[in-house]
Amino acid sequence: MEKTWAERRRSMNNYLRQYWSLYVMLALPLTFFIIFRYIPMTYIQIAFKRYSIIQTPWEMPWAANNGFQYFIRAFQNQDFIYAVRNTLLLNFLDLLVGFPAPIILALILNELAFPKFKRLTQSVAYMPHFLSWIIIAGMAKQLFAPTNGLINIALTRMGFDTIPFLNDPNHWVGTYLLLGVWRNMGWNTIIYLAALTGINPELYEASAIDGASRWQNIRYITLPSLRPTIVTLLILNLGQILSSEFDRPFALSNPLVNSVSNVISIFVYQYGIRGLQFSLTTAVGLFQSVICVIFLFGANALAKKFGDRGIW
């Protein structure tokens, strides 16, 4: 039987009387998001307008070509095309190398027999996460410079050729990836280790009775149990495929490797902040966000298709 309007209102009132305090508590975070997330978003229109430091975005005149002047200019800019290519390349390789690494490390840690040694290894492995990229770049120069770097000095003394870790584009990509793994691998294991503790020990007991080997344990119990975590993180990571860190490529790059190290964030820094072309770089930023959202939805849909829960 249909509820009458009065009945519905009464149940609504009851509901509010019961839960109003929760809604009040929600007000604060909502205010935060409105002020610091949604109001600033109105400035996205800079991408479609001719920027001026003395006008509000509402007053700025529209850009040419129905406001799309700066998008057109970005895509005509060879540097931007390279920046997109480099961002995709570095992020994809980073995902390829950097994503499995913490899973492998977590599995190894999980198999360690001595708890003390396990804890020590874990701590040592996640320490680098607290170093900024500026410090790491400084260390990288001390280690990898062609003539003054420790490793190359050692190689030369042993009679080998020097390796251009930082001054040849191809080698640089390798150095970039490995430093990323070194810095982030330990930290990223934390979430997997947490998931590992959640696995029901009865499963392992049962498999022990069945005579399963360690490999079989990993293959048939541990990895499947980690699967939802892995999928969630993969989706989140794919959402970042066109977003770009600034300090990592900026600190590690030099004029010899610009052809691979100039990513979108560096493009934005050079043209926007240093070149003061704010409309152009806002357009680039907007483009970047749109692509990221597309990837996020795409990855989520794909995950659902393959039978996983996705992230929403």
């Binding site: 120069k141 410079a145 062609p146 020097t162 001054n167 030099n254 004029p255 010899l256």
Partner: peptide
């Protein structure tokens, strides 16, 4: 050989 690695203001 290392000239390109060090930015402005570096004392190396």
């Amino acid at each position: 050989k290392d000239f390109a690695l060090y930015g402005a203001g570096d004392s190396t």
